[in-house]
């Protein structure tokens, strides 16, 4: 039995005096895909931020890789977080952002060419990211997150802006990531993405 990647115990988070997460208990094992589902405002993004160490808990305990999440290089070396669209580096093309990602990590999961192909960006490689459509930018974000090596992938609404065909393809890409031993926790409203995952609701106590 592998040690769990993530454990939370009686996790409570209040934002501006409003309880957003209450007594959340969650255990995620290596290789699992977990879909955090629920209506708007149910605390999905807050849970992801807690797991990434970007939102302190009001009470309770969060452990990622057996210790509290820390905003440092060692942590981000193992965790890839994709929440809102990042700020792109000025003067670089879409492809060069992926090249940078590949150059920084010693053993990328795929080559830049393979990532461009898998995320249907080959024809737009020379465009600055801001000249891409919303969906193409989201594909670029996902390509960057999946090109780099990681143990845990935290995704906040990865389906944002994607067409139906690519959402199906994303399900396959995430399954392949999990097959390699990676763990995925994603907040999603997409039923197709959630269907292949263990579904939890932050509103449901002790999910």
């Amino acid at each position: 039995m592998h040690d769990p990647i993530i454990t939370t115990d009686n996790l409570m988070v209040e934002l501006g005096g409003n309880p957003v997460l209450r007594n959340l208990r969650l255990t995620v094992s290596p290789g699992e895909i977990v879909a955090v589902v629920g209506p708007n405002g149910s605390g999905k993004s807050t849970l992801l931020r807690c797991l990434a160490g970007l939102q302190p808990a009001t009470s309770g305990e969060i452990r990622v890789f057996g210790e509290p999440p820390a905003d440092d290089a060692a942590f981000w070396g193992r965790v890839a977080l994709l929440a809102d669209e990042p700020a792109w580096y000025p003067g670089l093309t879409a492809r060069e952002h992926l090249e940078l990602m590949g150059a920084v990590h010693a053993r990328p999961r795929m080559t830049v060419d393979a990532a461009m192909e898998a995320f249907a960006l080959t024809e737009r490689g020379d465009a600055p990211p801001l000249n891409l459509s919303t969906g193409q930018r989201q594909r670029l974000c996902l390509a960057a997150a999946l090109l780099r090596p990681s143990t845990l992938l935290l995704l906040d609404e990865p389906e944002r802006g994607l067409d139906a065909a690519f959402r199906d393809r994303l399900t396959g890409l995430l399954a392949a990531y999990a097959d390699e031993g990676g763990t995925v926790v994603m907040a999603t409203h997409d039923e197709g993405l959630a269907a292949g995952a263990r579904q939890i609701s932050p509103a449901g106590v002790g999910a």
């Binding site: 580096y89 000025p90 003067g91 060069e96 090249e99 940078l100 920084v104 020379d126 465009a127």
Partner: peptide
């Protein structure tokens, strides 16, 4: 952002450098 959106760029390979310098290479290329 406005300036770069109006430019036509051609992607070039990233040099193999140690990770921090590969990151810093962005400023040089820009």
């Amino acid at each position: 952002d406005n300036r770069w959106r109006a430019r036509r760029l051609a992607s070039r390979r990233w040099p193999s450098l140690p990770a921090p310098f590969a990151l810093a290479w962005h400023d040089w290329r820009k």
